[in-house]
Design a protein around this nucleic acid. Structure first.
Lengths: 227, 227
DNA sequence: CATCTCAATAAAATCGATTTTTTTACTAAA
DNA sequence: TTTAGTAAAAAAATCGATTTTATTGAGATG
């Protein structure tokens, strides 16, 4: 099943935005690293203008920093910032979850079930990491989608991307993954039964678990600087 | 009092970003309006590249929308979105207020007092609207500054900008202004006495009052179009 | 009279080259 | 040995022109 039927081709700046965004989240660049524009130009096979437009959008989004006349750099990573991001995720996602449970209709339930099914299927191929990652992101999106607040969902998405920068530093851990997957299933059940209190507690645990894993990995290698 | 001493001049893209951002918040463009790039180029006296970079940043920030090969347009305004923004402002700013009161030190108290003083001074010149607007923004920033969460402050700032797009549609109302100003003074007192519960209730009222004023203005004139 | 096609026009997106600024490397003085 | 100073090199930012895509309107067709 492909995306949209009359999918008019995106412009170059959007394409490079998407791929560069993924590369930043996946940690293909070191924290604090300065991006060499001409190297990016070669690597992503785009011209200067679309590349610079993408870099500007990513800087406004918070995945890059623009220094006055000194180009773009990958933001440094700090344990405190990870704590900040995780703490806010708990607050905002629990808020959205409550509203989603209150406003969700049967179409929402269907989408949550469908997303969960795809997540379980993706789990069957442990070698295809990115497919699971995408299914995971979409499951959490589906869970909160009916909350009714465009801006809340936007901020949650942004925090999720920032969180992933840290989480992806940690090596995959099957034991943790197993717990997280069980929690996904429980979240689906609680969504169907509209048990807000239990679901909030579970989502809180869910995020904190990922947080502590990422934290353990982020703690060790001191500060990130490699010019 | 000027800004920084060795202020190295910003690049053109940043300058046009700032002024265009203000113009968008101040409602100099109609909601839904399509921006003619060459006209902007003439108006802001910049080249195409810096202008497009600024437009891309504003789109990522949410003050513009980019349509695939059809350029940039000012986002439409909807009553529901205003409600969403105001509701989230209440939630997030109360959250930040609590943390700010808990973590604020005497330096924070000083900055709040200073910002409040500047706000009262700005009030003495009702004709200089923009000075009051800036002092007002800075007062609310100072009040929450010590909350300790970079990302929470970032989202609050973004929501504030979005909210102002709606609020500024309403004509100035001296009676409302008087109430808001009294609330600012009360917020300062509650900050000094660290009365979290009372301050949260007051900030809630404060935002809801602005919200209802903006709402009243947003309801009447159907959709905005004035080319 | 409405609808469709296709050229003409306008606008957006992109490219290649130029200008400006920063960084580096080298030299000379303290 | 360190500190300034300065010229060369590199990189970022910007400009002007080209390419691509969308929009418009006249004429043809049902």
């Amino acid at each position: 099943m492909t995306a949209s039927p009359s999918a008019s081709r995106d412009m170059a700046s959007s394409r490079v935005f998407d791929t560069l965004k993924q590369d930043l989240i996946r940690g293909r660049f070191a924290a604090g690293e300065k991006l060499a524009i001409s190297a990016l130009k070669d690597h992503y096979q785009v011209g200067l203008s679309p590349l610079r437009e993408a870099l500007n959008r990513l800087a406004a989004y918070g995945l890059l920093e623009q220094v006055n006349q000194r180009g773009f750099r990958v933001p440094a990573m700090h344990l405190e910032e990870l704590d900040d991001i995780a703490g806010l995720r708990v607050q905002l996602e629990c808020m959205a979850l409550t509203q989603a449970f209150q406003a969700g209709d049967s179409e929402w339930e269907s989408q949550v079930l469908a997303a969960h099914h795809r997540l379980r299927r993706a789990d069957e191929h442990p070698e295809r990491v990115e497919e699971w990652e995408q299914a995971h992101l979409r499951f959490h999106r589906a869970l909160l989608a009916s909350c009714g607040s465009h801006w809340l969902l936007r901020f949650i998405e942004q925090l999720h991307d920032q969180f992933d920068r840290y989480r992806r530093l940690a090596p995959p851990n099957p034991a943790v993954r197993k717990v997280l997957d069980r929690q996904h299933g429980e979240l689906v059940e609680l969504a169907l039964s509209r048990d807000i209190a239990a679901a909030r507690a579970l989502l809180d645990d869910h995020i904190r678990l990922s947080h502590s894993v990422a934290r353990g990995c982020c703690e060790s290698p001191a500060s990130g600087d490699n010019t």
